[in-house]
Amino acid sequence: MKLSFEGVFFTYSTGVRALDGIDLSIGSGEFVAIVGENGAGKTTLVKLLNGLLRPDGGKVVVGNWDTAEYSTAQLAGRVGFLFQNPDEQLFERAVQREVAFGPRNLGFSERKIASKSMSALKTVGLADHAEDNPYDLAPFERKLLALAATLAMDTPVLVLDEPSIGQDAAGRRRIGRILRELHTMGSTILLISHDLDFCAEYAERAVVMANGHILADGLVEKIFAQNDLLQRAAVFPPQLVRLAQALKMPTAPLKVDQFVNAYSQWHRRKKRA
């Protein structure tokens, strides 16, 4: 589903101007990483997508809906949202009921609710915990549960705020794999993260924000290789990029296998020369 921000401004009641004229359009099925330092406006930007915040000026469009005309609950059917802290939403006595909450709000049929929640639980690897109390799960499992609760809503757009935080290698890989799968199935994905290694591995496009502006927008390979740009945005470059730069390689591939190929080619050429 297409998303667009047209000349969007937003100022908090404290007087902080969080978004200062944002123009951004995201095509259906894109996987976009939004990066930038704390307070750059990333979370504010995505909260406009489901009407948790309303722009002071400009227009935010989700699919063919102008968000100004829809409530958050309505927009929730189009934009799924994974918040940073799962404890701010879990309340049910059983994991399965927790996952069913969103789909039920959206008015799915009982059969669809059951099938969507069960498959979401399987996807995140919590199917065995369906009857457990959410608060008996470990913190990283609660985050996966919150992800399942979002997935079960079956939205065409998915917004994730720091999904990889607090996850071990297995959890990180699992979340990455889930996102990749959703991406191939055509979901539009927005990923907010300080973890550029994670972004580099899974996202296609990167939007760099600073002070309520968009500093740069383009393919992750292009954006993440620009050290000075990342420095200006106060984000830490991915490890492979730093390694490539330390080796003075001409390119900076973002995935391990690509890096290995590029490195051996470059190394061979250098030896010959």
Partner: peptide, 11 residues
């Protein structure tokens, strides 16, 4: 924050 999170889940 909770109000926002639950609205985002369609409440």
């Amino acid at each position: 924050v909770i109000l926002e999170a639950q609205q985002a889940r369609g409440l």
